[in-house]
Design a protein around this nucleic acid. Structure first.
Lengths: 111, 111
DNA sequence: TGACTGTATGCTTCCATAGTGATACAGTCA
DNA sequence: TGACTGTATCACTATGGAAGCATACAGTCA
């Protein structure tokens, strides 16, 4: 993989590396939402939500449509949920390993 | 998904959000490597490589084994490559869309 | 046009983390 | 044990980016 591609991929990972943005995506998974709805749902302030939305939009993960003064955002790349599912299962697996290392072999240090 | 889980997932994404670490993983995909070998291959300085390896290790993505004074690292969670593949294909798709938006419909602004 | 609502953008502060050199530590061999 | 190699850690600087406030901008309605 080229260095440029690596940078792009890393950038995409960083986009997803923010809990607040993951929460936004999670809400949007249920359906389109306006900025105001997201602000209310996530209990955040409007400029911050707008900025995160912009970042997700630039990354191509969400799309937007305008109705009057209201802007609705929606998932445009469902890949993100596959990613999250993968990471979640991997995370669960890691927890299991960590647990077994602690419970099963108490004398064996990690290091 | 719980907030704690979201934090874990976000953290994992951030771990992968560093080009240098992706390069390390890419090299390790070909097989185990010692720290020294990685330093030589990646043309980096040793403390930096060691720190990135530690981060990947803490995340459970790589494992290590010691032989004398030498420490070998190896992929322990192949999931990362699935993640990268997903992101890559999504990235390619996005590029295609961007291109078509530019070439196919020159009059239509994104905003 | 002016007032109002909904959204985006500037600017500043602050925190997390990458890079780097010096140095500590672990293991091997004389 | 002392010298040497390979790796990890410490202390520091610098940078990216998130949060928050103020404010600008867009669209609607009187």
């Amino acid at each position: 993989m080229s260095d440029k591609m690596l940078d792009l991929v890393a950038r995409r990972f960083r986009t997803l590396g923010e809990p607040y943005r993951l929460r936004i995506l999670q809400v949007l998974e249920e359906g389109d939402r306006s900025v105001g709805e997201l602000v209310a749902t996530l209990d955040g302030n409007q400029p911050n939500v707008s900025k995160h939305l912009q970042i997700l939009f630039d990354a191509g993960l969400i799309g937007r449509r305008r109705e009057g003064t209201t802007v609705f955002y929606a998932i445009s790349d469902p890949m993100v949920f596959k990613l999250c599912a993968l990471v979640c299962s991997s995370e669960a697996e890691k927890s299991r390993r960590d647990f077994e290392a602690l419970a099963g072999k108490p004398g064996r240090s990690k290091r």
